[in-house]
Nucleic acid binder design. Structure first.
Length: 323
DNA sequence: TACGCGTGGCC
DNA sequence: TGGCCAAGCGT
């Protein structure tokens, strides 16, 4: 066991952390019960995604798919439509595929342990431990970006992946493993912040070696910049949309506005900024009367909300007051 | 281990 | 404004 974990364990790190969590935990909809399905949906949505963005989608998604059987029975386009705007759409496809597996292969019952959860698509080491600890109180620690930062500051040095998991598991000294894990993440998300850690408010600063910043990580490569043009064609309460190829690596099968060549000459309706993965786009939306050749469909405005739109298409249609 | 995968909010 | 970042996963 690492020295930091040994010392912390002996001096009641977990009890200090949990006492703070009991007082300061944010009230979040997925903390209202321990239904493994609801915990699972929240964990899938929260992967690399901010709490604020998840909040809007979580209630809508559970309203539409209240149980794993309802989700399994849904069409994929319907699941993607509910996910639209959250990004990383592969998560939605894997969630859907996993729901079908649970219903077909596991008689609708979730695996009761992290080991079994790992076999479901979209559930990796973190998510399996999160669901098992929160829903079942299985004593397994989680490591996400927050926990990694907290542990590295506590120990005052960078840790390898495996060292981080070991340290987290060694610190986990509580029958309340789900609360312990959420408390570690809550601490990282609200106190042990990446840039300006609030050490004066930290319930476990006494265990911390760094008390603030470690040497900064190497800077990541810069975003590329690109201009991009889309055509907006409207007719009798319909909008012309095209569907991305099913085999595209990025957002396959999702609907968007037709792209125009950059030299297209048309009236500019609006422009906005949007970033997708490593590219910052300056998006120009041009008024067009007739769509160019190729596949595409006139979509009724009333259908737009139930379509799996890309986040950018959704943003444009909202900005144009069509959605 | 490194990379690709979306998006929106913040300063 | 532009750069940074957020409860990871699969390959």
């Amino acid at each position: 066991m690492s020295q930091i974990a040994n010392t912390a364990k002996a001096s009641g790190f977990a009890s200090s952390l949990l006492a703070w969590y009991d007082q300061h935990a944010r009230k979040l909809p997925w903390r209202e019960d321990r239904d493994p399905y609801r915990v699972w949906v929240s964990e899938m949505m929260l992967q690399q995604t901010r709490v604020a963005a998840v909040l809007e989608h979580y209630r809508r998604f559970l309203n539409k798919f209240p149980t794993v059987s309802k989700l399994a029975a849904a069409r994929e386009s319907s699941v993607l439509a509910a996910w639209s705007g959250l990004g990383y759409y592969r998560r939605a496809r894997m969630l859907h595929a996993a729901a079908k597996l649970v219903v077909k292969e596991y008689q609708g019952k979730f695996p009761r342990a992290s080991e079994g959860l790992r076999h479901l698509p979209g559930i990796g080491r973190y998510t399996a431990a999160a669901i098992a600890s929160i829903a079942y109180d299985e004593p397994v620690a989680v490591v996400d970006g927050n926990v990694e930062r907290v542990l590295e500051r506590m120990s005052g040095k960078r840790l390898t992946g495996e060292q981080t998991w070991n340290t987290a598991n060694n610190l986990l000294d509580s029958p309340r493993s789900g609360d312990f894990n959420q408390a570690m993440m809550e601490l990282g998300a609200t106190i042990c912040l990446p840039r300006q850690p609030q050490c004066l408010l930290c319930p476990v600063s006494g265990f911390c070696a760094a008390r603030g910043e470690l040497q900064a990580e190497a800077a990541r490569p810069r975003q590329k910049k690109r201009k991009i043009f889309f055509g907006l064609a409207r007719r009798n309460g319909h909008v012309f949309l095209v569907q991305r190829g099913k085999t595209e690596s990025l957002m396959p099968g999702m609907w968007e506005l037709p792209q125009l060549p950059s030299r297209a000459r048309a009236k500019r309706l609006l422009s906005l900024r949007h970033s997708i993965t490593v590219t910052d786009y300056q998006v120009n939306v041009m008024e067009i009367a007739t769509p160019q050749k190729g596949s595409g469909r006139w979509m009724s405005r009333s259908r737009l909300a139930s379509l799996p739109l890309t986040g950018l298409a959704r943003k444009i249609l909202q900005r144009a007051e069509l959605l």
